[in-house]
């Protein structure tokens, strides 16, 4: 019996949360939204998604939902690329920028994409140092 099957031993009608993480809900709704906008027919999505499921099987240590949404994201990126909406490099680039934005944003402040290139004003003021912080000694000759 695989680890993924262990859920079968639990009561089956207990209310489980639909999504484990907000990003799963985002990714799920994104595809449903694009479909409802008429950008693709549902069977087209199912074809892409089921191909990914076949080619990217569960990995050790992953929960069922981890596997499912890892596959969902891969398929989602393929879908938007094949529709010519957003390419993979654009996603990678933007993900990098978001990462920078997090790193540049003081804890507790909203994460804005603009913070990727320019850290917002914050109270981490430098203590005035009335002396050089670095010195490159003059050479004697």
């Amino acid at each position: 019996m695989t680890q993924a099957y262990s859920t079968l031993e639990q009561p089956f009608d207990t209310e489980e949360p639909v999504f484990d993480h907000p990003w799963q809900a985002q990714a799920f709704s994104l595809i449903v939204h694009l479909h409802r906008s008429g950008l693709f027919a549902w069977p087209e999505w199912v074809k892409v998604f089921s191909d990914v499921i076949k080619s990217a099987p569960p990995q050790p240590g992953e929960s069922d939902n981890d596997t499912y949404y890892r596959q969902w994201i891969v398929a989602m990126e393929q879908m938007v690329a094949s529709l010519g909406l957003v390419g993979e490099e654009d996603i990678a680039q933007r993900a990098h920028e978001w990462r920078q934005a997090y790193l540049n944003t003081p804890h507790g402040q909203p994460i804005l994409l603009a913070n990727a290139s320019c850290a917002p004003a914050h109270d981490h003021h430098h203590t005035p140092t009335r002396a050089p912080v670095a010195v490159s000694p003059a050479s004697s000759c």
Partner: peptide, 11 residues
Amino acid sequence: ELRVKALESLL
């Protein structure tokens, strides 16, 4: 999560 955020903001 960053990739989902990236795609959502681009779209």
